[in-house]
Every structure is written in structure tokens, then in C-alpha cells.
Amino acid sequence: MAKKVFQRPKYLKKAVFHYCPGCGHSIIHRLIAEIIEELDIGEKVIGVPPAGCAVLAYDYFDVDMGESPHGRGAAVATGIKRILPDRIVFSYQGDGDIAAIGTAETIHAANRGENITTIFVNNGVYGMTGGQMAPTTLAGQNSTTTPGGRDVKRDGFPLDLSEMLAIARGSVYIERTAVNSPKNIMRTKRAITKAFKAQMDGLGFSLVEILSPCPTNWKLSSVDACKWVEESMVKTFPLKVIKDEVEGAIS
């Protein structure tokens, strides 16, 4: 008898992703939906999508979803979670959303130890608006607003937001992963699972930063975009567990 080994996860709607071919968002959406099913929290999850390429995430996840103004995901998620402390609340945010316009909301949510989970998708550009410099654009990397590449003297340095959040005393788990290879995708899945579990155990703020290809704005093929993550991005944003106060505490 034939066994189905690959199917649409229960918590993804029957909709076609609008994401570009080779975009990391599609993979990350699938991972989150799988995890929601595996942890059996589909009836308890409330997601907060960002402004940016993933603004339409509510058209894909088949769970309750509430829109946030640009960058305010951590504040909106805070409001939901404080009213419904036994639900699982996550925000889904891009690099411009979380590390530029929403820096304050994010750092303070982490510092208060809000018991929420943030999925931070880092592709080093403003995707939706057409490839402008993001806070995480690498030194020398091209963008539509950094002629000749990001010049750190003129445009500043890429921001290590996750490391900053790790300093905040209320954060319990912060890991940086990538979705450019099967190995890294599995590692990302483990990280998100752990982040959700930390929240389910009431431990505090958890975040997974995911280096994610944006072939369109990087002007690379899907394959080359995955390579570029490995060859360039990880040098500035190394893949690692940045903070883990969960081990031992998790049930």
C-alpha cells in the first residue's frame, strides 16, 4: 500500500504562496505549521504577522492571526498573551520590521520576559518594498539605497539584534539558524520547536533568527542564493545558539 510521505501540513490553508520561487518564507511557513501540528497546539495558537513580504501570512496559516503595524509585533503579541496567558502567541517578523522600526518594542518585550515566541526572518533586505538597505544588510552588500554597496562609514554596520536580545535578562532562548540546506532546515525546525516549548513551559521570551534567501532582491538564482547564505551571510551572522536558559528547565 502506498504511504503518503509528503503532504500539506494541517495548519496551512489550501492557498498558493505568493512568495517568489526560492524564497525562504515558504519553507519557514511550512516548518511552523508542522510544529504547530506536532505540538498539538493548533487550537491555542495566535500568530502576529508583520508588514513586509510575510504580511499575508494570515492567508496561509490556518490558525488565529492578528495583523500588527510595521515593527510592532512584539507589542501586539504582548497584549494578546497578557490577556490569554495559556495560549501560544508568536510574532513573525522580517529584519526591517524587527531590527529597525520595531527595535524598541522587541528589546523591551524580551527584557520584560514576555512569554512569547518571535520568528525573525533575516534576509538582509527590505523585500516587499523592493530591496532597500535593511539593518542587517552586510557590509559591501548591494541594495537599492546603498549605491556601490553598504559602506559602513556612510550607512552604518549590520545590526546584531539577536545578540542584543540575548543580553536582555528576560530572554531565555535565542538561536540563529538558516534555511539554505536540508541540514539547516532541520536545525531550524528543532530551534522553533524548542522556542515554542519554552513558551509552553512559561519560561520567557524566545526567538529564532533565520537566515533566509531572497533570490529576487539578491538578484541570484535560488541555488546561488542558498550558497550566498553559506558563503557570505554566516560570516556576519554565525549560526549558533546565542542564549539558552531552557536546557533542564523544559519539561
Partner: peptide, 9 residues
């Protein structure tokens, strides 16, 4: 924005 979340809830 916290009000937005709490009101949604």
C-alpha cells in the same frame, strides 16, 4: 500596540 493585541484577545 499592546492595546491592539489585548483588544484582539
Amino acid at each position: 500596540n499592546m492595546l491592539i493585541g489585548a483588544s484582539m484577545a
